[in-house]
Amino acid sequence: MAEPLLRVENLVKHFPVKGGFFSREVDHVRAVDGVSLHIDAGETLGLVGESGCGKSTSGRCILRLIEPTSGEVWFEGKNVTAMQADALRLVRRDMQIIFQDPYASLNPRMTVGAIVGEALTIHALADTAKAYDDRVVDLLETVGLHADHRLRYPHEFSGGQRQRIGIARALAVSPKLIICDEPVSALDVSVQAQVINLLEDLQQKFNLTYLFVAHDLSVVEHISTRVAVMYLGRIVEIASARDLYTAPKHPYTEALLSAVPIPDPKVKRKRIVLEGDVPNPIKPPAGCHFHPRCPRAEERCKSEAPLLREIAPGRVSACHFSA
């Protein structure tokens, strides 16, 4: 098999919990606890899970915006996790990120033109002032904004427009991979559709690859080629979007999907309601992280952590019983 665009091996991020006298490290939050996945060029991998399951942290660790505790990230055959600052700066021309909150992600004291054009300055991508200006205008028009907007400040724009500015900023370096960290969760439903369509159009136009982090299952189903489901720092299932949504193999995925509202009041469906809450990621349960809430759990699940194993071509699940 050819090397995928991005390959993540056993990524781990533990945040220290300080306490006691002299702020010793007393424990740590296992935000990401051994995530492995790969993304092929041109596809969209959806990453879903509840709040706090580590999906955003995984995305940031891949870009090394957060330093992972251990594990490896390979991008185009290069080990990103082992890179020094200079090499990392170079690889960031190929990997970009779009943020969730369009209000916090734009510097309020810079004009839109300066925000979008900053990458051109950092990587010396424009030789002349004219080339710089042309490129900024080009980027703004690509995301559906007007050339004159480059002289305005972010607070003069609506949430959807701001998200477009954030997208233009990510596009400035002509990246290959964009990590979309819940890019539509903070937007109105009508604007969500516009931004999703924009992302799809851009993907076709520039042959982009997305890691699409979200908790909205309908959005993920719409945009993703494949979907990875996360629970408490671990990936429990990866499958093509169609397979996952029609025939989930992991009990957690099943429960998650049964919670998606169906826009038809006549359709009745059996809802799987999980018992209890998500366990504390400081002390995750032994064995399978999901076993205290799993309807199918047996004795074995309490001690033996299930590995992600291939149950069908291109389809992995971390459950002892999925087949």
């Binding site: 940031r60 870009l63 915006l65 990392l88 700066r89 170079l90 960031r92 021309r93 990997m95 970009q96 990120i97 943020f99 969730q100 909150d101 916090a104 992600s105 734009l106 510097n107 900053e118 990458a119 950092i122 990587h123 954030g166 900023r169 400035a172 370096v173």
Partner: peptide
């Protein structure tokens, strides 16, 4: 810790 600073870091600043 603001996202716009994170964005600058992601751009290679």
């Amino acid at each position: 810790e603001k996202e716009f600073v994170e964005a600058a870091r992601a751009l290679g600043a």
